[in-house]
Simulated scan of single mutants.
Amino acid sequence: MNGWGAFFLVLPALYAVLMVRLRRSWQQLPILPKQESQLPIHTADVPLFSVLVAARNEGLMLPLLLHDITQQSLPGTQFEVIVVDDNSTDNTAAVVEGAAQHSSFVLRLIRLQDQPGAPTGKKAALQAALNVARAPWVVCTDADCRVGPDWLGSYAALIQTDASVKFVSGPVLLTGDNSLLSNLMGLEFAGLVGVGAATIGQGQPTMCNGANLAYRREAFAAVQGFSGNEHVASGDDEFLLHKLHAAFPGSIRFLKTPRAIVRTAAPPTLRTLLAQRVRWASKWRHYQQKAPSAWLC
């Protein structure tokens, strides 16, 4: 048997070992008990969470997200929402201004074009929101997402029972029609979320999703936030994950509970999906760490 033959025999075995280890790590992740969402929550004068939402031309979807946030089981005094309008050409800003007039929580609008230098892009939008955020914890989602009523309460329950946590990755679910393409995209995406969760459980975090994550604002500042990768269009989530893991080993958690799921629409076409994956892949060469060899150990 030549070298290539041996390679193609060994590769499936290595893949199988990897999948078994990842599945075991997923199963060993602690599940947030339902009753823990009823624990006493932050009662200081400042809110517990600053929810950051970067939005560009999301005038149709943003009202749905804001409605979901009004339904949170966590009291409105415990969080604020900061929406950053990233040079939209639709009514995104007007949607936020209208909602803020009767909101049960503090809702603020930042126009990115009004910031010094008129920056653009998601990292710039998040940084602009962070500059005015008041809460010790930041929670990020996207303007086209939907969240359940216990979304923020689940984060509150986790961080109040684990003082060492600095960064929390949450579950994200793709939604769509019942077509074969949509179902395949959903399975592939669920696999990515599962791998990210399992590697967090192994203490070797690799990936997360910016549509559902949280981190301590002081930890973000300690690692200089997005500094060093501002030039990369994607990666506001995973670059920060890797930085915080390097600076604070053992401080990364995955929020394993269905109550924390954030739902987002699947890409409408195969071309859109491929363009998204190319954009995601473009950041990999900038990672400071390789995929951990501990997966196979």
Rank of each mutant, 00 (worst) to 15 (best):
F7D: 06
A13I: 14
A13Q: 12
L14N: 04
M19N: 10
R21N: 13
L22H: 01
W26L: 15
I31Q: 13
K34R: 15
E36N: 13
H42E: 11
V46Q: 11
L48D: 06
V51M: 10
V51P: 03
A54H: 08
A54K: 02
A55G: 07
M61H: 15
L66S: 02
T70Y: 03
T77K: 12
V84Q: 04
D85G: 03
N87Y: 08
A94Y: 04
A99E: 10
V106M: 11
L107Y: 07
I110Y: 07
G117V: 07
Q127V: 07
A129M: 05
A129Y: 01
A135S: 09
P136F: 12
W137Y: 08
C140W: 03
C140V: 13
D142N: 09
C145S: 12
G148D: 05
Y155T: 01
A156N: 05
S164Y: 05
L173I: 09
L174E: 03
G191M: 09
A198W: 03
Q204N: 14
N212C: 11
R216Q: 15
A219T: 11
F220S: 02
D236G: 14
F239T: 02
K243P: 06
A246S: 13
R259V: 06
T264W: 04
R279A: 15
A281P: 02
R285Y: 05
Y287D: 04
W295L: 15
C297W: 13
